[in-house]
Amino acid sequence: MPYDSAATRARILAAAIEEFSAYGLAGARVDRIAEAADANKRSIYVYYTNKELLFSATLHEVISRVNEAVPLTEDDLPGYAARMFDHLIAHPAALRMHLWRQLERPELGPDAADVYSQKMAGMKAASTVGQLPPTDLLVFITGLAQSWILTPRDLLTAADGGDPFAAERLAAHRAAIVEAARRLCEPAPQASATTP
């Protein structure tokens, strides 16, 4: 069978996502990536040059997948928060890769500043901002979507001792995310005029 470089690259990238999401850039080992990808270690260096560039490629892949699967909908931020929560529950490596990026190489990965700027301009134009500046609102919405996964498990089980990742518990939390996001997006209450 002829050598398939595209398939080898895809296997390396998939193995690298698993390795980097578990160990970060500093803790990841090229030997383990090569073994998991059923690839020659040398091929990793041929395709990606070094471990840091492979890490960067995995960030691009993971962030692109998230952006494609969960596009930011500035006119429906509660729905966006719910869809992002669903995606992160189904794809935990995505959030772990984001956290490793923030810890080890925040400058790596695709630059989404233009996309965020356009979305925030859309939020202003659509009057979906509510009482908060668009940047703060988007930070809070993103935080809501990530919060369940980032919260210590003992806090999640404190209320009833049940499995915090059981389907019914996730559904309840998803509904809470939607409601919290909806409230964040509400316009400021109008001050009532008083007559002397």
Rank of each mutant, 00 (worst) to 15 (best):
A82E: 14
L108N: 04
S21G: 10
L150S: 04
T157H: 07
S127Q: 15
L184H: 06
R83P: 04
I63E: 15
M120P: 02
I12V: 10
D75S: 13
A188L: 11
H60W: 13
H173F: 15
L99H: 03
S21K: 04
A16P: 08
G27C: 01
K51S: 05
V66A: 09
L138K: 00
D4R: 14
R105C: 12
P92Q: 07
M123D: 10
Y47F: 07
G79K: 03
G27Q: 00
F85C: 04
G162L: 05
G162E: 12
S5G: 01
D31F: 03
A81W: 05
Q131T: 14
H60V: 14
K119P: 01
L54G: 03
Y3P: 02
A16M: 05
R96Y: 03
P164R: 06
R11V: 06
R9T: 07
I17G: 06
A112F: 14
A180M: 11
D76N: 14
M97V: 01
T49N: 08
P2N: 07
V66L: 09
M123E: 07
A172F: 01
A193H: 09
R182N: 12
R169E: 10
P2E: 07
A28R: 08
Y80L: 01
Y23A: 14
R182W: 08
D111H: 02
I33Q: 08
I33N: 07
L108P: 02
H87I: 04
V66E: 12
L59Q: 04
A180K: 10
A15G: 02
L99M: 10
V66T: 09
V46N: 11
P106Q: 02
L99N: 09
E52K: 14
S5R: 15
V46H: 11
S21E: 07
G162Q: 11
T135F: 08
L108D: 06
E35Y: 01
E179G: 07
D163K: 03
L150Y: 00
A158Q: 12
D111Q: 02
M1P: 10
E74W: 13
R169S: 12
P110E: 13
L184E: 11
A26Y: 08
T58V: 14
A7P: 00
P133W: 00
G162C: 05
A172S: 09
D31M: 08
P133Q: 12
G24F: 06
T49D: 11
A90F: 08
L99Q: 12
E168H: 12
A121R: 14
P78F: 03
R65C: 03
P78R: 05
A15P: 07
A193E: 14
R169I: 05
A16E: 03
